[in-house]
């Protein structure tokens, strides 16, 4: 590489700014102290030990980190934790009920084998959840469009579509 930039002309100052942030995650209120630059993904995983949202790319290209904020599917790797002050967040851990009963989306994913390695699955499930909350009977095209922000390298896509179709009430 030409004139590779000399390492860090302006290294970080010794004390990075912190904030106290209040998040409601899966219905439980949390108060955490984080650096302002901490992403929601890192806050969930490192501070709250909720590892269901996965780091896949770190720049909003893969969807493995998808969580719901106020019901809307977003990428937690591109979201600052401080920007979520007071917001309600749902992660995959919050989808099944406390007595262990699965959400219909989760059950459909299992029944249709809509997963292989499963690393992208929490994000896929939440993206599907957000779609159905907005549109309980999506068409095939609407399902595919809604799921197009979640990459699956194993290629579980046909089965994800099948799960979506079943959830939308289409005959299989």
């Amino acid at each position: 590489m030409p004139n590779a930039p000399s390492q860090s002309p302006d290294a970080a100052p010794t004390a990075a700014p912190h904030r106290t942030v209040h998040l409601t995650v899966n219905g439980i209120a949390h108060e955490i102290e984080v650096e302002t630059r901490r992403t929601l993904l890192d806050a969930l995983r490192a501070d709250l030990h909720l590892t269901g949202a996965k780091p896949g790319c770190g720049m909003g290209d893969c969807g493995a980190c998808t969580v719901l904020i106020e019901g809307e599917a977003v990428y937690s790797c591109l979201t600052l934790a401080v920007a979520c002050e007071g917001r309600a967040i749902t992660t995959i851990e919050g989808l099944s009920s406390s007595d262990g009963e699965l959400d219909p989306v989760q059950s459909a994913f299992i029944a249709h084998d809509a997963l292989q390695c499963g690393f992208c699955t929490p994000g896929q499930v939440l993206a599907m959840k957000a779609l159905l909350a907005r549109n309980p009977h999506p068409s095939d095209d609407e399902i595919a469009r809604a799921m197009s922000g979640n990459l699956c390298r194993c290629g579980a896509y046909p089965k994800i579509l099948a799960a979506g179709r079943a959830l939308a009430g289409h005959p299989s």
């Binding site: 995983r45 490192a46 590892t51 995959i92 699965l102 989760q106 299992i110 084998d113 997963l115 499963g118």
Partner: peptide, 21 residues
């Protein structure tokens, strides 16, 4: 036959290497 570990994989209960803390 649906996967016997499907539940872990759809609930976030499956612990991947990245999730070891």
């Amino acid at each position: 036959t649906p996967r016997v570990d499907g539940r872990e994989r759809v609930t976030g209960g499956a612990t991947y290497t990245y999730d070891i803390q």
